[in-house]
């Protein structure tokens, strides 16, 4: 039986550290936190250490803190931190933990959040570490599925685009295995889901298929998770140019899909979803970005030990 005490003081580094019942508990809490504002986090200071650019993650966390009466300190790019003067991540964390109650970290290197959690005496939340993990994005994605489809169990989810470098995809695919989801992976060969992740799916006996045609993947899908081909993950710009326009979702492609197909995207998008799709009743990607506030309010309140004042 999960309770608020299971989250108090907890680090959030990868989604794999969470059991299914804990994730369900968090998503239920997020639903109860959607409309909550007030002074729940009054006097609490949240540190936002963003060594890489972020819009949705950082702003939705800051919005969540603001709506619960807390305050933020931190920076939004590495150039304005002491890293620019050669300070190590470990030293930055040791300094900032003295200023705050919770540390939110985004960093370009994989495993940075794990290292920060080892060093810090306060809880650390991974807000994206290179191409590795982005657990709160995964919680937001799951919450979006729950809100848009009314369930997560048994959904048929199509992932399309850059499945190789997309950390949001890596995290979400591994968690969907806990919800008996059917998974279809749509990408060019070069951008396939990494072999290690495919092997994990096979080991777990998860039903999945791979294809290159977006149109052909859609007829039986409940959720389409589109992703951007990320220029910043390519070392060779010519490779990026080759794949940046691999898929574009427009109304003609959607003719192959059920009317109820929920369209998700972690954003930002470039050209992979045509603007005309924005008016589709199940184009959920902007709502998905907004759900981030509810999920992050609930998560921070749980970690900081204040959620019991809201949860029934």
């Amino acid at each position: 039986m999960v309770s608020v005490s299971d989250f108090a003081g907890r680090d959030v580094i990868t989604v794999n550290e969470f059991r299914r019942d804990e994730i369900v508990f968090l998503l239920d809490a997020a639903a109860q936190f959607e409309q909550v504002t007030g002074t729940l986090l009054a006097g609490r200071v949240i540190a936002t250490l963003f060594f890489e650019p972020s819009t949705r993650t950082r702003l939705s966390f800051e919005s969540a803190v603001g709506r619960l009466g807390g305050s933020c300190v931190g920076f939004a790019e590495a150039g304005v931190s002491s890293q620019a003067k050669g300070e190590s991540l470990a030293d930055t964390v040791r300094v900032v933990e003295g200023y705050s109650d919770l540390l939110l970290l985004r960093h370009p290197l994989e495993g940075a959040a794990r290292l920060a959690a080892e060093v810090a005496q306060i809880p650390v939340v991974n807000c994206g570490d290179g191409a590795h993990q982005h657990p709160t994005q995964t919680f937001v994605d799951l919450y979006t599925m729950q809100r848009e489809c009314g369930r997560i169990d048994g959904l048929h989810v199509v992932f399309a685009g850059d499945l190789r470098y997309g950390r949001a995809v890596h995290s979400l695919v591994s968690v969907l295995t806990l919800f008996n989801a059917r998974i279809t992976l749509v990408s060019p060969q070069f951008l396939r889901l990494p072999e290690e992740q495919r092997r994990t799916l096979e080991t777990l006996g998860v039903e999945y298929r791979e294809m290159e045609s977006l149109e052909a993947s859609l007829p039986e899908a409940d959720v389409l998770y589109m992703t951007r081909v990320q220029r910043e993950r390519f070392t060779d710009p010519t490779e990026y140019d080759k794949f940046k326009d691999a898929y574009t979702l427009d109304m003609s492609v959607l003719q192959n899909a059920r009317d109820s197909l929920a369209i998700l995207h972690p954003l930002p998008r470039v050209q992979e979803i045509a603007r005309e799709v924005d008016v589709h009743p199940h184009a959920a990607y902007f709502r998905q970005a907004h759900y981030g506030v509810a999920v992050r309010k609930a998560l921070m309140a749980l970690i900081l030990g204040h959620a019991d004042k809201v949860l029934a």
């Binding site: 190590s88 470990a90 370009p108 290197l109 994989e110 495993g111 290292l115 570490d129 290179g130």
Partner: peptide, 12 residues
């Protein structure tokens, strides 16, 4: 061997 791993950049 992962050049993007934090252990390649920090003394850990």
């Amino acid at each position: 061997p992962n050049h993007a791993c934090i252990t390649r950049a920090e003394s850990v």
